[in-house]
Amino acid sequence: MKIPAVSFQSLEKVYRNVTALKDLSLDIQEGEFFGLLGPNGAGKTTSLNTIAGLVKPTKGKVLIDGLDAIRQYRETHRLVGMMFQDIILDSRFLNVHEILVYHAGYFGIPRRRAQELANELLKRLDLWNKRTARVQELSGGMKRRLMLAKALIHDPAIIILDEPTAGADVELRLLIWKMMEEFHEQGKTIVLTTHYLEEAERLCDRVAIIDQGKLLVEGSPEELMKRQNQQHLEDVFLQLIRDDSV
């Protein structure tokens, strides 16, 4: 059997008094385009942030390519490129280009190479003419582009995007999907969360729907629509969430 790219094993997370994840078990296979879906507060960000080392699980494990994401974080972090839901940029004294070069440096990429990679990504993400700008001079969508560039600069095998298209204009949305489809074709694993269910339906090989920290269903969009007897993934989603809350 193949080792999953990402494996959540009986994951539980309790913040002070909120239970964000309850016994979540989910495998994402290598090369999959995977959508993690669920309403606000379902626990999507919490589960993804355990991979990034920002959230300590209360119970359970997260494995990346079979490696423990908590104990072997130095290896697993190298494999993962993460675009956080919140805009997080080292913006006080670095410009756009420098932010990328430093970020690459944290991943062990030598300065010369990092500069080349930063240039490529800035051109590709249409930020080239903003390369010497301060973050404060960027629009919201431009900041998201920069966040995406950070996630991609060390050429990760597993790309994790937490609501990459929130606040993105049509052009950026299309660009993100196009890039992700290309990475998908190259065999990379892509995990994303989104509230645009028609896009998830169209793009994802498989999706999981979670609510209140529990896994409700997983499968390909077609399977789920068939099983629930619905025309659209969005209707599957609404039905399941409604059933779950009663």
Binding site: L54, Y73, I88, S91
Partner: peptide
């Protein structure tokens, strides 16, 4: 405060 400590925590730096 700014949140960019997440960049370090999610990097391969120990």
């Amino acid at each position: 405060w700014d949140g960019n400590i997440a960049d370090l925590l999610s990097s391969p730096l120990s």
